[in-house]
């Protein structure tokens, strides 16, 4: 039991630290943690696609954008409370993923990477050009109402903290169980050898479609939380760079490992804040830190063990 006990204790400690963090840290740092939490949601959902199934998706921000804009449009023009748009945002992002999956999922490796970058750019450019007259062009959409949870209107970073990190907790639970099930096993088999997976009786086309739609829908729901937190969204929040950052979180932390991906989100989203004192050189230092870490630990900082759980 001690082998399984240690990670459980570490996880409980981590959760306890997070729960008291908003009471100890300044509002600025709580706001940083809110951003880290949103990135963690994105990274966990991309981890399903990239880390578990090995599908090189570098357009994850596109689905984040579809969800955020769905939430923004429904809440500003129809007056629907922003958190109630979660299912619609998830469905919109999932449907969009299913639409692009047909050409995308036939490809492998680097080809898939290029096409998903293209998908991300198409979405961003469509938003800039005020797609369907709904997205507000490069100004985006403002005046998104504050989220209301059980009658409470969440305004401060401290209040949003519990909403966002609560969503992360649910995500860890759901994806952890999926990863430990036959679905996760099938995805990892596809990642290791797709031909052998198909030849072992795994419906690879269906598993790839399912994981792509599920991971993208989850990014869409993260988009709802992002819109609710920001109250203003614009295309620049959903550029190629966002996809690259989330991609880096998964690979850096440890593809396929949930604690690793959380660590990746903390490092990639949090480190530039720590380096803020270096002013304009901070992204340079950050880039160097990434390179050193990938050379020293190519499988990620906290990789998944072959035999073990998530």
């Amino acid at each position: 039991m001690s082998r399984r006990g240690a990670p459980a204790v570490a996880a409980a400690l981590f959760a306890a630290l997070l729960c008291i963090a908003p009471f100890l840290l300044s509002t600025y740092w709580v706001d940083v943690l809110d951003s880290v939490g949103l990135y963690a949601l994105l990274a966990l959902s991309l981890n399903l696609i990239l880390g578990e199934a090995g599908l090189y998706d570098m357009g994850h921000a596109a689905f984040f954008a579809v969800g955020a804009y769905t939430a923004a449009i429904l809440s500003t023009s129809l007056g629907i409370p922003v958190l109630l748009t979660l299912p619609a945002s998830g469905c919109a992002a999932g449907l969009f993923a299913a639409l692009v999956a047909l050409p995308v999922l036939r490809l492998r490796g680097d080809y898939l990477l290029i096409v998903t970058i293209g998908v991300g750019e198409i979405v961003r450019i469509a938003l800039v050009n005020d797609a369907f007259g709904l997205t507000g062009g490069s100004n985006g959409i403002f005046g998104i109402p504050r989220p209301v949870l059980l009658g409470w209107r969440l305004r401060t970073p401290e209040q949003l903290f519990f909403l966002i990190w609560g969503a992360v907790a649910v995500t860890v639970l759901v994806f952890g169980r999926l990863s430990a099930s036959r679905f996760g096993r099938a995805l990892r088999a596809i990642r290791d050898d797709e031909v052998a997976a198909e030849g072992s009786g795994i419906d690879t086309a269906r598993a790839k479609l399912t994981v792509f739609v599920l991971g993208s829908a989850w990014a869409g729901m993260a988009g709802t939380l992002f819109a609710a937190k920001m109250t203003v969204i614009s295309p620049e929040s959903f550029g190629f760079w966002e996809s690259v950052l989330v991609f880096a979180m998964v690979l850096l932390g440890g593809a396929g490992s949930i604690p690793g991906v959380l660590l990746g989100a903390f490092l990639v989203a949090g480190l530039p804040e720590l380096f803020r004192g270096l002013a304009s050189a901070r992204m340079l230092v950050f880039g160097l830190a990434l390179m050193v870490m990938m050379v020293v630990r190519p499988r990620g900082l906290w990789p998944r063990r072959a035999g073990g759980g998530p």
Binding site: R185, R188, A189, D193, A196, G201, I202
Partner: peptide, 27 residues
């Protein structure tokens, strides 16, 4: 052609997948 990143047992279980019924929600 094995699944090198999976455990030995998980390799065998991957071979049994076609006979399993559990869906996402049940998992």
């Amino acid at each position: 052609r094995l699944f090198g990143g999976l455990s030995v047992l998980d390799n065998v279980l991957a071979g049994a997948d076609a006979g399993l019924r559990a869906g996402l929600l049940a998992s």
